[in-house]
Structures are given as C-alpha cells and as structure tokens.
C-alpha cells in the first residue's frame, strides 16, 4: 500500500497527462506532416520552375507557349565552378533541341542576399533574361531591381565583356543603367550576373558542344 501511494505521487505518474498529450499530439503532427509534405515540396520546386520559361525564352514567347499548352522540358543539374556549386537548369523543347540554360546564383546585396535566375541562350552567346527570386533591399529604392523595366536591360546582352553599371544614360553595349538612388543594389545584381557568366560560360559551352556532337553523330550518317 505504501509503495502504491508513493508511486501515485511520483513525478512520472503525475506527468501521465503530459505523456498522453505528447503521444496524441505527436501522432497528429506526424499525420499532418505525411499529408502535407509532398505539397510543400512541390511548392518549393514550383517556385523556381515556374519562372524558368520566362527567363530563358522571354516573357512573350513563354506566355504564348503556355497558352498553346506546350511546356519546356527542364532538367536540373549541379555544376561546380568558381569554387562553388551552381544549380543549372537545362531547358529543351519537345523535340529535345536545346532551348537554353538557366542558372540560379546568389550573393550579398546591399542589405541581404540577392538570389537571381540568369538565362543563357542555346548558343551560350547571349543573356536571355534575369529574374530576381529573392531580395531584401530597401523598399522604394533598392527594391526597384525586381521591376521588369530595369531587368529588361539584361536581355540580349553579349557574354563577351563584363557589364558595367553607369549612373548616367547607358550608351555602350556593355553598360547598364543604375536604378536611380540604388547604385549599390544595381551593382550587386550586375556583379552576380558577371560572376555567373565568368564562372559558367566555358562549362555551358562545353555542354552545348557535347550535345551538338551527339546530335551530329546520330544524324551524321545521312550526310555521308
């Protein structure tokens, strides 16, 4: 009898409610996790994948493709370059012709990290577009780097020389107009683009070469 009353007053016994609740809550959390985890993963991936056609083809053509019900085949891969790992997306049309490459790059901006998607065309000669995935720049000033109007400047730029940010009107081929009042944010974005180009240009060129060699070999017999 003594033992039983001592047991009843012990901490473990008094904590039976806590233990029971932990079990019940643990199970409900596990079921919520099982039910929702696939959806959350899909959301994370969709976030980047959604933007890729627009970056590599330009928004008009991507829109047209979407209305026609066609989709780009997007293949992610990891490429090591310049001392870090880059996430590169190879995009191709339905008939497996290369559409271009999109690279996810990030670096320190003015306030915090800026994450970009940079698009290379199929010949790895020009930039097809830039999209800002994540930024925490000053609202109203550095924030303007997300505006399409400013990012359009990067479209069609050649990869041969690094881009330079100028505060006055940009005239030469490799000059980019800064966002007024946000020179540093503009420089950071341009710097990321330049660094990505410098790191990946050769590797992507090699990949493109490998693909066209493979395609030539397949169709080469016909040429004799």
């Amino acid at each position: 009898m003594e033992k039983w009353s001592r047991l009843r007053n012990s901490n473990l016994f008094q904590a039976w409610l806590v233990l029971l609740l932990s079990l019940v809550f643990g199970m409900s959390l596990a079921s919520v996790e099982i039910a929702l985890k696939p959806r959350i993963q899909a959301n994370k991936i969709k976030e980047t994948m959604e933007k890729i056609p627009g970056v590599v083809l330009g928004s008009d053509r991507a829109q047209a493709m979407q209305t026609a019900g066609e989709a780009l085949d997007i293949e992610p891969m990891t490429v090591e370059a310049g001392g870090t790992f880059y996430r590169v997306y190879r995009t191709a049309f339905d008939d497996n012709t290369l559409a271009g490459f999109v690279v996810k790059a990030s670096a320190q901006g003015y306030a915090d990290k800026i994450e970009l998607l940079v698009g290379f065309d199929a010949h790895v000669k020009r930039i097809t577009g830039v999209f800002v995935l994540d930024q925490k720049e000053t609202p109203g000033l550095g924030n303007k780097i997300v505006e399409e109007q400013w990012l359009d400047q990067f479209e069609g730029r050649s990869l041969s020389s690094p881009l330079v940010v100028v505060k006055t009107r940009a005239e030469k081929d490799h000059e980019i107009d800064a966002v007024s009042g946000a020179t540093i944010s503009s420089r950071c974005v341009t710097g990321i683009v330049n660094q990505t180009v410098e790191d990946l240009r050769n590797k992507l060129m090699v990949k493109k070469q490998q693909e066209s060699n493979a395609a030539n070999e397949k169709g080469g017999n016909g040429h004799g």
């Binding site: 320190q108 901006g109 003015y110 041969s160 690094p162 330079v164 950071c188 710097g191």
Partner: peptide, 30 residues
C-alpha cells in the same frame, strides 16, 4: 544599413569593374 555588405565588398574585388583580358587559346576558344 548596408555597413556589413560595404565592408564585405571592400574586401573582395568587384567583378563589375575588374580589369580583364580576353585570351585566344587556339581552336577558337576564348
């Protein structure tokens, strides 16, 4: 605001205005 990124940028070279040269390594590879 911006002090830490300023210090970081002061310690790393800026690719946007770094001086570079284009070398021809033969076989059309630049």
């Amino acid at each position: 605001n911006g002090v830490d990124s300023g210090i970081r940028r002061a310690l790393t070279p800026d690719p946007a205005i770094e001086k570079t040269v284009l070398l021809d390594q033969g076989e059309g590879r630049l």
